[in-house]
Amino acid sequence: MNRSRRLSTKLIYAFILTVFLVWSLFPLFWLAITALRPNLGPLQMGNPFVFSPSLDNFCSVLSGKNLLPYFLNSLIIGLVATFLSLFFGVLAAYGLARFNFRGRRLALQWILSIRLLPPIGFVVPLFIMFKALNMLDTPATLIIVYTAFLLPFSIWMLTTTIQEIPKESEEAALLDGNNHFQVLIKIVLPSLWPAMAAVALLNIVAAWNEFLFALVFTSKKAVTLPVAITAFLGDRGVYWGEISAAALLTAIVPVLLLLLVHKQLYRGFGHWGVK
């Protein structure tokens, strides 16, 4: 009885997972198929699975445009902005989670409001501001902008995580004469890694793929990959194959980073002990 019930539960799990994985991965599979289709074009009658694959689209993406400078821009901007948003995010989250001060709730709300405003409302004022500062078309500008707009999520996510961690050992450490900074490093950080890995991942994906600010604030020197890719959207239709190839190539860095942090994501949990 118990065994057959366990089996049926497993079957249900397997079914849910299979359906989900097909739905989730098929479009990616199709993206790869589209990129591998020779310039015959993906919109053809008949069986869409039958075609002779070629790397033409990848070649034309890599040879047609020198994507390297855009790639380097994206990489530097993405990594630095992610690092900064994480670094300052951890500090702020600790401040918000472990101190009770006047205006704390207001600060939390204000931080969230930055995330709530549609970016389109920011673009023009920010453009005017950066122009006055003579900072347009520099990687630094995008780094600052991304850091600022990634911080709200980082802070909120990390604040709630820190609050989940039992306070007792921190209080003990404080009584032992450690200052708050030491407590943060020694006691809080070890429990925070998984959440930080998740935030880092989500932040770098957001920074890596951001389009609107990158489009408006750059013109030549600081252009990032997503902006360069849309050049494959011609004025007379879409170069389906090439844009798919470009999208796959662009995704390489986030995929590598995901591989890198993936181990961190689910590690070290459960050792917060019982509250």
Partner: peptide, 10 residues
């Protein structure tokens, strides 16, 4: 987690 990594425009 993979779908998240594709540029939204694409």
């Amino acid at each position: 987690l993979l779908p998240m990594l594709i540029v939204p425009v694409v």
